[in-house]
Design a binder for these strands. Sequence first.
DNA 1: ACATTACTTGCAATCGAATGCATTTTCGAA
DNA 2: TTCGAAAATGCATTCGATTGCAAGTAATGT
Lengths: 397, 397
Amino acid sequence: MSAFRKISQAALAKTISAKKAGAKLVAPLQKSAPRNQAKIAARATGNASREGGRESARDGAREGIKRQVTSYDVAMQAGISQSAVSRCFKPGASVSPSMRALVMKVARELNYTPNAIARSLITRRSNLVAVLISNLTNLYYPEVLSELCQQFEKRGMRVLLFTLPHEADVDKMIAQVWEYQVDGVVAAARLSPQHVSEFERRQIPFVLYNRTLQDKAVNAVICDQIEGARILVSRLAAAGHKRFAIISGPTDSVVGQERTKGARERLAELGLAAPIVVEGNYDYHSGAAGLRDIVRRLGRAPDAIICGNDVMAIGCVDTARHELKLAVPEKLSVVGFDGVEPSRWLSYNLTTLRQPVQMMAQAAAEMLIGLIAKPDSPPEKRVFSAQFIEGGTSALG
Amino acid sequence: MSAFRKISQAALAKTISAKKAGAKLVAPLQKSAPRNQAKIAARATGNASREGGRESARDGAREGIKRQVTSYDVAMQAGISQSAVSRCFKPGASVSPSMRALVMKVARELNYTPNAIARSLITRRSNLVAVLISNLTNLYYPEVLSELCQQFEKRGMRVLLFTLPHEADVDKMIAQVWEYQVDGVVAAARLSPQHVSEFERRQIPFVLYNRTLQDKAVNAVICDQIEGARILVSRLAAAGHKRFAIISGPTDSVVGQERTKGARERLAELGLAAPIVVEGNYDYHSGAAGLRDIVRRLGRAPDAIICGNDVMAIGCVDTARHELKLAVPEKLSVVGFDGVEPSRWLSYNLTTLRQPVQMMAQAAAEMLIGLIAKPDSPPEKRVFSAQFIEGGTSALG
DNA sequence: ACATTACTTGCAATCGAATGCATTTTCGAA
DNA sequence: TTCGAAAATGCATTCGATTGCAAGTAATGT
């Protein structure tokens, strides 16, 4: 034990003299050095003894298992207790400036980084949020994800990403969410009510993005799809469009269903004929196929086609112009939803309803952070309105 | 202590009779019940006593801190040891079928889920990989991310996503990567050589995606950009194009630089005039601006413009056709790189070089998993070739 | 100079699961 | 039936950091 003591005292003296601290500084630190050096030494990995800048390709691989630098190593090297090290890395903790300086210096020398896993275990806060997204190739979601990611990063939380592909074994995927003790979940994916109940039962704060549940009050950030669809129809009808068709989103997409519903409602209110509806799956080709289908069934083109999202609208426009030689917007108006970047490209300049993605993502992040801090807040919905973009794919007079 | 014993015995009997097990099954489990019920009880959270399906909104929030169900709870409820519970959740472990069945049943009743954080701490394997991506809005990256995600999920690893936005404080971001003890890193972002050294010093396996380092052997998955650019030039030149221009990627993009370099080299070899080069930043507007700039500086349109990526090429095509009234491909050929989805849309049908994203992502995932299993493998580069897509934006004769 | 408060710091007990080792149980062979 | 090997199980320690509590030190007032 005295050997350890000697070493650490020497190290301490060296360290302090190196930063030219006055005698005042030396005294307290020497006096309060911990007495259980043996225990600290036993816990330390031995990595502390190797020199700072030196790098050797194989020295960490010894013993087969890689041992990282721990707070015990720093404590031993600095001749202080492990708890002191821990406290120096906690913002509001009670540590003297000299102690903090010393610890930071030694930590830097040893390349010490706090272990978030160990911290999470004891604090029961992982600082992880799970983001569930169905389908990243959807052109709309990357924007959402990007925004969410930045929001959470800004707030000191890490994003654990889960993609739910062919809507297969969502259960297994979700189980992983529990295992990692995430502090919260943002779900921008098709989830069954059972899954949502599971969130509740486990008391994990969650925010649904662009979806809600019929018979349950949940936290959600949504965009008023029905309102948006009604606006689209109103504008088109006002400009004289009479025969409408819809290329809807898939039936299991709540957003898609609402868009269709809003459009139908408004058409009925206006006394216009019920639209022909074909189902798409949100991709380019289903927009193309949808148009062909509509024209085939109608025997001619309708006045306007409302597509469940921009990408299908783009597919529709392209097929109309290049394959069916139907002039858009002269012979056929096409509108979409979302306002994704390509909808603004000159070749399309789509008439669409832009969702305020940035605001929505920010709201979702804020809401989730709030819920984590105060889990018993009553459920809240934040509903945004989409912005009508009058592009060039519709004849609006 | 005997009280606990009694309770757990009763629970055990009930459990077993419930699944109608024969006497054979009962005997071993009863005999090997642990003797330290007191210790297990002390560790257990008490959650075990509440009934399975019951849900009460507030009962878990008592004491302010949420206590989750642990392996101790399951052990107590089942009348066995904690280690037995642990083993039942480990695939290859030595557990009898009856024990496994009992544990699984009780676990389900109590809604027990293993705590991955605790597991990571003791095993020193987090099963997390960090994915670093510069810019998700880039249209090319979501595809990469999606593919990587699925690959890792398939292999039982979770993805911790880091987006590096305005290339600011990358350091702080990277520090987070260390804290979370990720098992490996896939970097599809601009990283300084210092950052890469940091990976090495910490002995964290990493794979660079679409980038390499000049003076260091690293694991990387790349696409041969120079080869690709040479192919483009060769094809265009063979079809009679003489005056070339380039809208390059930003200078800090290695991929962009290589594409420019390959094109220049090949042009020089063919004895054609050095191209005019303007710098873009990979987005639609910089493609548009690039074209205007080129036309202004040249006083006329070149024969062909090679764009650093598809989105700029699309911007270029749109500006040529709709703003400058330059027919593409009749008066001007435009080519891009990447082969992103919109490049296949009928309005563009871009001539481009498609990167085999799926194969590359798969290779990256495989490589990283391999490195994690065997950290001392020598660095390897996997180089893919891009596929030439003869679209309609270039006059190839 | 002494008492009292306000800081610092160390100690030791956690968090929840994994695992080497010892012990018990099972099962097949003699 | 008995013995021995193999399988199953329990015990106790461990991972690395946090934090309540106690002890020690500095700063302040009288």
